Amino acid sequence: MNGSSYEQRLAQAVAELDATRKAVARAEAELAEASVTVRSKDRAVEVTVGPQGELTGLRFLEDRYRTMAAGQLAASVLQAAAEARGAMARRVMETFEPFTRPSADVPELSGVDIDWTKIFGSALSAEDERDRAPRRASGHRLRDEISEDPEEEHRHG
């Protein structure tokens, strides 16, 4: 490898790194303003989350919430929030996915290895579990979400 070839490859790598840095900055700026809004399956609530999955809005739709039991309303809020967090996580992953690929022009630039589960935690794992879980009747959903008291289990077991 001669000196000029090495200098050209280095200049190309530096230019690609600079272009990637600018693209990442644009993606971060775009996502900083992003939000996702989801309605619960029963259409009783609407939840909005920000770019880090934080709850930024909660609306009770029509008057449905007035006739719902507290546990049922809570389940609707949690379901919509989990779905919104998952949607935002997917949006962030799609935005940053190009930076995880190796460079076509500079093979030494392998792309960034991102641990999405570490970043999004339960937003992704809850969605994965929901996709794998068998569908249950809605009346059993709330009971499935509640951790039973060990003392209660011993009395009834």
Rank of each mutant, 00 (worst) to 15 (best):
K22R: 08
A23I: 01
A29F: 03
A32I: 06
A32F: 03
V36A: 06
S40C: 10
D42R: 10
A44N: 06
A44G: 13
A44C: 14
E46G: 10
V47R: 05
T48L: 13
V49I: 07
G50T: 09
Q52T: 11
T56E: 11
G57C: 06
R59N: 11
F60R: 10
R64M: 09
Y65C: 08
Y65V: 14
R66W: 02
T67A: 12
G71T: 09
A75E: 13
V77I: 15
L78N: 11
L78K: 08
A82T: 07
A84D: 03
R85E: 04
R85N: 01
A89S: 04
R90A: 13
F96R: 03
F96Q: 06
P98I: 04
F99Y: 09
F99S: 06
A104G: 14
A104Q: 14
D105A: 15
V112Q: 06
V112N: 01
D113I: 03
D115P: 04
D115W: 05
T117Q: 08
F120P: 02
G121P: 01
G121K: 02
S138L: 11
H140M: 07
R141A: 12
L142Y: 08
R143P: 00
S147W: 11
S147A: 14
S147H: 13
P150V: 12
E151M: 13
